[in-house]
Simulated assay, not measured.
Amino acid sequence: MRFLEDHHYIKLIRQGDMQAFGLLVQKHQNLVYTLAVRMLKNPEEAQEAAQDTFVKIYQSLSGFEGKSKFTTWMYRIVYNECLSRLRKVKRNFTLVEELVNNPEEPADLMGGLEIMLLKERAALVRKGIEMLSASEAVVLTLFYLEDQSIKEISTITGNSESNIKVQLFRGRNHLGVALQKLTNSELIGTK
């Protein structure tokens, strides 16, 4: 299904069109769930957080002024919802994300060995990100995978732009160290 721009749905929702809200949810549900599951590390809890996020979006949509992109505003809500859940259970969290882009070529054109190597590399990157602090993992994911700008990440996380730049720099360095450790332990066989 091809979706329209967010502002189109928002206008209709403000006029009372519940079907438009359903379409807005369909358009963004995978994005919201993905961020929630990576922060919470629990699919069931992430599903609940995603549902609660959309309830909050609906309830506060009248307050959305359009000063930022809708997705930035939405990320902020899901981010805060997940942080709230994590604080309730007082556990540390990490965000796991694949930093390896999918190949541009169709899979049937790639050799089986190339596909296997890409999957192994992606799994290694995921393990490396699990070793990062939550803030570094979130910032790396939003910047590299969700194509959010530093300013947008600042809005989402509530941190200053200079702090985001520092987290990106440190996160890349820490990810490099983590990947080196993982690679060495896999070569030695001491997973």
Rank of each mutant, 00 (worst) to 15 (best):
T72N: 01
A50K: 02
E45G: 02
L113M: 14
L86P: 10
E120P: 02
A134I: 01
S84T: 13
V139M: 02
I129D: 02
V139Q: 06
E130Q: 14
K127M: 15
E130L: 12
I129V: 15
R87N: 15
V32W: 05
S62T: 10
Q59N: 12
L95E: 05
D17I: 05
D108T: 12
E48S: 11
T71P: 04
L23V: 09
F93S: 12
N80C: 06
F70M: 10
L109E: 05
V89R: 15
S135N: 12
Q19S: 13
Q47A: 15
F64I: 00
N92F: 09
L83D: 11
Q26Y: 07
N92Q: 14
I115M: 15
A107Y: 00
N80F: 06
E104G: 05
G66Y: 03
V139L: 05
T53C: 07
V78F: 03
E65M: 05
F93W: 10
W73V: 03
Q47K: 13
L35H: 00
I77D: 05
V96Q: 12
S84W: 11
G22I: 07
A20M: 06
E130S: 13
L35I: 03
H28G: 03
G111D: 15
F21G: 03
T53E: 09
S135V: 06
D108Y: 11
L124Y: 08
E48Q: 10
V25R: 08
Q47H: 02
E105S: 08
R121Q: 13
Y79A: 04
N102L: 09
L61C: 07
H28Q: 07
G16V: 00
A134K: 00
S60V: 04
G128Y: 03
E81I: 11
L31E: 10
N92L: 12
E136S: 12
I77N: 04
G128S: 14
K41D: 13
Q59E: 15
T94Y: 03
I77K: 12
K56E: 12
Q19H: 13
L35N: 01
Y33K: 04
Q29K: 14
E81Y: 09
E65N: 07
M39I: 09
D108W: 14
D17P: 07
L83T: 14
V139I: 10
L117T: 06
L35A: 02
V55A: 14
A122H: 04
R87A: 15
L118G: 01
T72R: 01
R121F: 09
A107L: 00
P106G: 06
K88Q: 14
N102I: 11
V25L: 11
G111E: 15
F64D: 01
Q59R: 14
F54G: 00
I77Q: 08
D52K: 03
Y33A: 04
E81M: 14
V32D: 01
R85N: 08
A137E: 00
A49Y: 00
V89C: 11
E48T: 10
L124T: 13
A46R: 01
S135G: 08
W73I: 02
L99C: 02
S62M: 10
Q59C: 06
R121N: 13
A107I: 06
P103T: 08
E97M: 03
H28Y: 12
A46I: 03
V125N: 02
F70L: 05
R121S: 13
K127H: 15
K119H: 13
I77S: 14
V100H: 10
T94Q: 12
E65W: 06
V138G: 00
